[in-house]
């Protein structure tokens, strides 16, 4: 029968007509991201950073550039390096967050921004001064202590290095203390069990 298909199609239209719109008007309204969202405004705490460059080594793209020089501080006062350059080239960053995972001193945090459109690639490099001066609203990605405290980078206050806490994973603590994991524990040395 002609027209039946048309009526059926219009029923679907009618059903959807009364639904609340799923889309939002972006620049005026915003979707709030989850606190774990991995975004650009990196939070970096110079007080905690020793310049060990673990993040730079662990970055799959090698976009973190760190230049340090020996500082005159004696060991009892904290044997750390002077940081001269700490550049994150987010023009090539893919926001995987492995730098944050690798940081042994919880000095680097992901941010929550996603609106850093610029006209030149050079403006996409976050330099050390910008990192120092930025208001730090760190993402809770790989930082469960912030998540457990209910912190949200969108409406929470900026946090200082004393407030962001330490990541409490037991085996990360082990790694962070500098102790090497016993290789026998993780099955290394055993022959590969490729059952394919």
């Amino acid at each position: 029968m002609y027209g039946l298909g048309l009526a059926k199609g219009l029923m679907i239209t009618l059903k959807n007509l009364t639904r609340k719109p799923f889309t939002i008007q972006y620049p005026e309204e915003r979707v709030s991201q989850h606190p774990r969202f991995r975004g650009e405004e990196f939070g970096w705490y110079e007080e905690r950073c020793t310049g060990c460059a673990s993040c730079a080594k662990y970055c799959p793209l090698g976009i973190i550039k760190i230049v340090t020089s020996p500082s005159g501080t004696a060991k009892p006062q904290g044997d750390k390096y002077n940081l001269e350059v700490f550049d994150i080239d987010i023009g090539r960053c893919m926001f995987c967050g492995l730098c944050v995972e690798a940081c042994p001193y919880d000095a680097l945090f992901m941010g929550s921004g996603f609106e850093r459109g610029r006209y030149a690639r050079s403006e996409l490099v976050i330099g050390i001064d910008e990192l120092r001066q930025a208001e730090k609203r760190p993402s809770t990605w790989f930082r469960p202590q912030l998540e457990n405290a209910g912190y949200s980078p969108h409406d929470g206050p900026p946090l200082s290095w004393k407030e962001v806490g330490r990541e409490q994973n037991r085996w990360h603590q082990h790694e962070k203390s500098g102790a090497r994991i016993n290789r026998a524990d993780i099955g290394e040395g055993r022959s590969s069990s490729a059952e394919s």
Partner: peptide, 8 residues
Amino acid sequence: VERLMGIE
């Protein structure tokens, strides 16, 4: 990778 290293 887990099969390569025998990780549980």
